[in-house]
Nucleic acid binder design. Structure first.
Lengths: 300, 300
DNA sequence: AAAATTCAATGAAATTTAGTCATAGGTAGC
DNA sequence: GCTACCTATGACTAAATTTCATTGAATTTT
């Protein structure tokens, strides 16, 4: 069986023109090379070189093998180089899962410096999961999960990266806009706009309305944050969302933010990852940048 | 540095799903494989598998290496197979040089059975040489030289494969056609048609005309045997050529063959090859078929 | 033409590498 | 909690590669 070393020998003898020169270029003695090629020819059962005295010439089979060497060896060289890049964290990819609709715009602000800092590393963002983000993390479909609702599991590590307050956004023409904070009962005659996820995952229900046994007059779901806020601005409904997100839109839309309850609803965005990848450089870089970005957003 | 064995290991672990299974499929102990992959990961400085207890999973770098394994290993398998064919004389090529214009049609009759008998072996025929056929043989531009004029050299072996008589071909309307043999002087009022090679290589001059110090009235050269014989048939000249070749044309053209001198000029076609390739199977096969074909032609 | 130089081949010895054995420590399934 | 199966590890062994020392042959130099 032909081995890589055989290809290297073919190529080097051809390049150098003699055994002795090829040997030293391969950091071997002439003797070692002589033994090697003899063994190779014996094993393959065919002469690869014709040797007239001290001049060496390829046979047809030898010429074939040389061609293959010149074709295959560069592939090995490329593999070595790529593996070196992987080892040096100059190459790789990070698959990020998002279980947090409004976080997308914040994520973009993390991805940008990440890509700038790690040119060889790609980021894939997944937003749809067949069995939920946690399952995706378990199944190695993603490497990192961004979620406001961490689930404690033995093998998964969660870290909070971004504290935020959930506020209610109302149009300036809405009667509620006169208030600065509101109680569950205030929503009973309002249309509530949310993302299309289960009620169990909506804090406005779980932490605000349901404990008080209140319900909005109507509950409509919409995919896009922009559209939700346009609807709110037109006083076609109210929506709960992170304060920092609402703040950005408040600059251009006639909307107002109201605290939910007297203390407000305070949450964190968490990143989760498999504990056995705690030392993954890209993962840690991402988390570091995420926290950094979060503190900038909160600070502003 | 990645070696072929590493690629084999990647592929086999992936195929079998476990170290133990891969090990036995590679005819190794589980221990050997475990040592090997540990060393590989240590050397390359990067984890290729993540191991949770008894389940094994590729890292991103491992996945990359697996892809490369599936790409590169088949190349090795193909090289092994091709080399096996070379070794088994099922593949190769024979470069035949021709220094004998009229032999071409005879050569075709040798090439045909050769190709039929050795499906993997190609034949290249060269008819033009920068420094002559012998030099081409020396320079390894050809493996076999077909010539009527062997030159004895230490490292070249010549074998006669085909005896023939050189005859003069004349048109039936030519006044010479009444004779059955002729003398040099008979040509002094004839136009002689030959192939365009040096006079020194034309036996009609060297062995017939020059010794008698005769010359034809005119000497014209033509490339193609067919055209020469058409000219002869039209009594536009006479030509010297092997009897067996003339015989073939005599069936369709009004030409006649005359013996040169009282005993005729008898020659051989020789094949020459480098002595150090005496054991080359294709060479010997070719020569065997050539002699066989020759005896058939002579016999008929 | 002789001497010196360069190159390849070879056998034996040394070294390095790869592989085995025996065993320990886990994890998954029953 | 037991059993079966899988991987890891250290010590040892077998195999391979490589070197050393030397020879013979082909070129080149003197």
């Amino acid at each position: 069986m032909i081995e890589k070393i055989h290809l290297s020998i073919m190529r080097e003898i051809n390049r150098q023109g003699s055994l002795t020169a090829a040997a030293s270029s391969l950091n071997l003695t002439q003797s070692a090379l002589s033994h090697s090629i003899k063994k190779l020819e014996l094993q393959s059962g065919i002469a690869l070189w014709l040797k007239d005295g001290r001049q060496i010439r390829l046979t047809e089979a030898g010429n074939y093998l040389l061609e293959q060497a010149n074709r295959v060896l560069p592939q090995f060289e490329r593999i070595d180089e790529t593996l070196r890049q992987f080892a040096g964290n100059e190459r790789g990819s990070l698959r990020v899962g998002m279980e947090c609709h409004p976080c997308y715009q914040w994520l973009l602000k993390v991805v940008q410096p990440f890509l700038a800092q790690s040119p060889g590393v790609d980021i894939d963002v997944k937003q749809r999961f067949q069995f939920g983000g946690m399952a995706a993390l378990f199944n190695y479909d993603i490497d990192l999960l961004i979620t406001p609702d961490p689930i404690l599991k033995e093998q998964i590590m969660f870290e909070p990266v971004f504290p935020y307050e959930l506020v209610l956004v109302v149009g300036q023409s809405n009667k509620l806009s006169a208030l600065t904070q509101l109680e569950p009962a205030d929503l009973t005659d309002q249309t509530l706009l949310t993302y299309p996820v289960e009620t169990a995952r909506l804090d406005i229900f779980q932490q605000f309305l349901l404990p008080a046994q209140c319900m909005p007059r109507l509950h409509k779901t919409l995919e896009a944050t922009d559209i939700i806020l346009q609807m709110v601005a037109a006083n076609r409904g109210v929506a709960a969302m992170p304060k920092w997100l609402a703040l950005e839109y408040a600059q251009t839309l006639p909307i107002k933010m109201l605290r939910l309850g007297s203390n407000g609803i305070h949450k964190h965005i968490y990143v989760g990852y498999r504990k056995n990848e705690q030392q993954n450089t890209h993962l840690q870089t991402f988390i570091r940048l995420a926290k950094q970005q979060a503190s900038q957003s909160t600070g502003s």
